[in-house]
Design a binder for these strands. Structure first.
Length: 154
DNA sequence: GCCAACGTTGGC
DNA sequence: GCCAACGTTGGC
């Protein structure tokens, strides 16, 4: 059974439009440097679906859907000393960090802003809406996924 | 630009 | 193992 997730990205760095324009509409999700987020990446399976969220945006919003097309593998940027994602803890022999490949599925006709999601019944316990939530990779419950999907397709 | 809510680092 | 200092995220 496939699972549901949410990935945050700053649109000024990498937006959903950037994903749609990428070769094969696919990108590797590099640069996650938080253990909890990494563990969620490692739990992802091919076919899992993902909400694409724009953080540090105006307004911050869920803007579309992507899917996992390659399960977790070593984030080789972590041992590239010229990369901004370099981490001396990581090496090819002992990779500390993981990434997945993500493919564009759809962009919502209208984004779903954070402040609108906050008042939707059934989303009260969503990680995204938790005060102080900073996780850039987070699981989404099936019920939450369905509620949000319905909101997006009005 | 501010600042709350984190996670990480390193001295002890 | 504790915890202060520091760095980062991300909404506002």
């Amino acid at each position: 059974m496939s699972s549901f997730w949410l990935l945050k990205s700053e649109p000024s760095v990498f937006s959903i439009d950037d994903l749609a324009k990428s070769p094969h509409q696919t990108t590797c999700w590099e640069g996650v440097r938080n253990y909890q987020a990494r563990n969620f990446l490692r739990a992802m399976a091919v076919g899992d679906q993902v909400f694409f969220y724009h953080s540090n945006a105006d307004p911050p919003a869920i803007v579309g859907i992507a899917k996992i097309v390659k399960a977790a593998y070593p984030d080789y940027f972590s041992w590239d000393s010229s990369s901004k994602y370099f981490d001396k803890k990581s090496s090819p022999e002992n990779p500390a960090w993981s990434m997945v490949d993500v493919k564009f599925v759809e962009k919502f006709p209208t984004p779903l802003p954070l402040d609108e999601l906050r008042i939707v019944k059934g989303l009260e316990s969503m990680e995204l809406l938790r005060k102080g939530s900073r996780l850039s990779v987070q699981p989404v419950r099936k019920e939450e996924w369905n509620i949000i999907l319905k909101l997006a397709q009005v």
